[in-house]
Computed example of a mutant assay.
Amino acid sequence: MDETLRDRAAGALMGAWIGDGLGLGPHWYYDLDELRRDYGPWIDGYTDPMPGRYHDGMKAGQLSQSGFILELTARSLVENGGYDQADFCRRMDEELFPLLNGEPANGPGGYTSQSIREAWRRRVEQGRPWGETAGHADTTEAIERTLAIAVRYALDPGSLAEAVARNAALTQSDDLVLSLTVAYGAVLAQLVRGETLDARLSDKLMHLVKKGVLPFHAVTRDGLKPPRPGDPDPPRAGRFASPDALLSPSYMARAAADPDIRIEPAWKVSLVYGMPCAIYHMLPAAYYLAARFCDDFESAVLHAVNGGGQNQVRAILTGALVGAQVGLSGIPERFIDGLEQGRALRDLALTLAQQAARPPKE
């Protein structure tokens, strides 16, 4: 077994849970002056939510509903040895949906996202089957849980893309959101395999597109060169019309490495790429921070949190990407010690990572 891959896989999962916990207290402050008044000039650890705000009543180091669902997904993967959609749906029916009532300020973590509320409404109130539960939210809830699937199938990108797309489609109906979700999973898997989030990573992902492994359509030749006269329209490898979701991570990495492009302090990435919740604001900021602080987990997640807005998701996505690069061994112990059930989550991450480190059967 590749122990370094196991370390990186576990680091990705723990990085996501830590990012979730760090964002719980100062979540969704769009007024940065108010954020600083409530939490001081620099948030450097887990904090209690303020009364009357999101996650009111929760305590520092606890997980939001995103962390809860990520744990549910990881347990399903571990106990089934891989992705089993029927088992995942059963767990949602039995472990999450009975705790919801359709209201935003309700459920595990004290808040339920739009896409999960819509899935609950279709499944519970309207009695629809799974497969008819997706909504139009343009947010990242699917990434927040399917990152565990990406970790599990890091050595098998074709199975990764299929499983992530199937799971994401349970709650997200927009093809663009689905393509961005699958692309994030593909990026995360490359980092678990030992690649770096840099200017060359997108070329490696495009190579998988050309081989028909990743389900994106592309007509360009290597190096994004144009097709030549007489070149046939390539058969579609899958449902997604454009590979651009695979190209953007390397552009963010180039920006992070370019000495003529400086975002200082780095938490202001939230102002550059946007503070709102939509997936097209969250992913560029996470890719930028993960490339800039590729070997510094603490700086990456704390800058993600201190940027305000949808800082919890920014920290989850950044934490997973950097956790995959530094490994579990590169995550400061204080972040695990301060997380409620941190040791149990670490054990779960290591178990899933052990499965991920086994090469796929030929």
Rank of each mutant, 00 (worst) to 15 (best):
D260H: 14
E333H: 07
V187F: 08
A266M: 06
G308P: 02
S115T: 15
R91I: 04
R123I: 10
R292F: 01
L283F: 11
D87L: 06
L214F: 09
P227Q: 15
D231R: 14
L289D: 00
M50T: 03
A324W: 06
Q312H: 11
V78Y: 06
N311V: 00
D198K: 02
G21E: 04
E103F: 08
A189D: 05
W42G: 03
R292A: 01
H281E: 06
N101K: 13
L339Q: 04
G309Y: 01
A189T: 05
R91V: 04
L317Y: 07
F88I: 04
P360D: 13
R314T: 09
D295Y: 02
Q190D: 14
G194V: 10
L246W: 01
L72G: 05
K361C: 12
F88C: 03
A134W: 05
L178K: 11
E3M: 11
D56G: 10
A300S: 03
A183P: 07
V78N: 07
H27D: 09
S113E: 15
A245F: 08
E162R: 14
V326N: 00
A74Y: 02
E333D: 13
N101L: 08
L348S: 09
G81Q: 09
W120Q: 08
D156E: 13
A137G: 15
Y30S: 09
A169Q: 07
R117N: 07
P235V: 09
L99K: 15
K268A: 09
E298C: 08
A168L: 04
Y251D: 11
E118G: 14
Q85K: 10
L160T: 06
W130A: 04
S113N: 13
I18R: 01
F88L: 12
A183E: 05
A304N: 05
A315M: 04
D198F: 03
V213M: 11
P359C: 12
E95N: 12
L22V: 01
S115W: 04
A150F: 07
A150G: 15
H27G: 02
A245R: 06
T133D: 10
L339T: 07
F240I: 12
A255T: 07
D203W: 05
L72M: 11
P234D: 11
Q190N: 13
K210G: 10
R53Y: 03
G102H: 12
R254K: 14
E71T: 04
H281G: 00
L100A: 15
A320V: 10
V187Y: 04
G230H: 11
W120M: 10
A285E: 02
G135R: 08
V213Q: 10
L201T: 03
P243H: 12
K59C: 14
M50N: 00
S76W: 00
R166A: 11
P51Y: 05
Q310H: 14
G57V: 14
Y39R: 03
G109I: 03
G109R: 04
L22T: 00
D44W: 06
G61E: 03
V164I: 14
L180I: 08
E362M: 15
A257V: 09
Y287K: 06
L176W: 12
D347S: 15
E103M: 14
E79H: 05
T133F: 09
S179Y: 12
R121A: 14
P235M: 05
F88A: 00
Q312E: 13
E79S: 08
T146D: 10
A285K: 00
A169H: 05
R292E: 02
D93L: 06
A218G: 01
S250C: 09
